[in-house]
Nucleic acid binder design. Structure first.
Length: 106
DNA sequence: CGGGTGACTTTAC
DNA sequence: CGTAAAGCCACCC
């Protein structure tokens, strides 16, 4: 859990994720780059993993650079992530979203 | 301070 | 398309 020391790294991630518009997706790299750590996209997903149980945010709109739903396996139910995205009008190409069309950069 | 870990990314074979 | 390896940074013990 985030200590009161205020790492705020997570907070930054949550802030960006919460800003993802409806029907759009973003990538870990894009968020990391926005935070100034483009070389460490891992931290983004890792940050979500830390609070996915406590926070209510559209983290299903966060996908990897290839548009694949790498995080879907960490969702409560398999296929839920894709279902949510399709529900928002996001189209898929195979097992990945049409990242080129729905990519959103903060 | 050091080692292990990870929802990533890129390059290479 | 598959696996492998390296780079990367924050967090935990």
């Amino acid at each position: 859990m985030k200590s009161t020391t205020g790492t705020d790294f997570f907070k930054s991630v949550y802030d960006v994720v919460a800003r993802i518009p409806y029907g759009r997706v973003t990538t870990y790299g894009a968020i990391a780059e926005h935070l100034g750590m483009k070389s460490s996209a891992r931290m983004v997903g890792w940050a979500l993993n830390a609070d996915r149980y406590n926070l209510n945010m559209p983290y299903h709109r966060v996908v990897n650079r290839n548009g694949e739903l790498s995080g879907s396996r960490y969702f409560p139910q398999p296929g839920m992530m894709r279902q949510l995205l399709e529900s928002e009008g996001v189209t898929f190409v195979g097992d990945a979203v049409d990242i080129k069309k729905f990519i959103w950069i903060p």
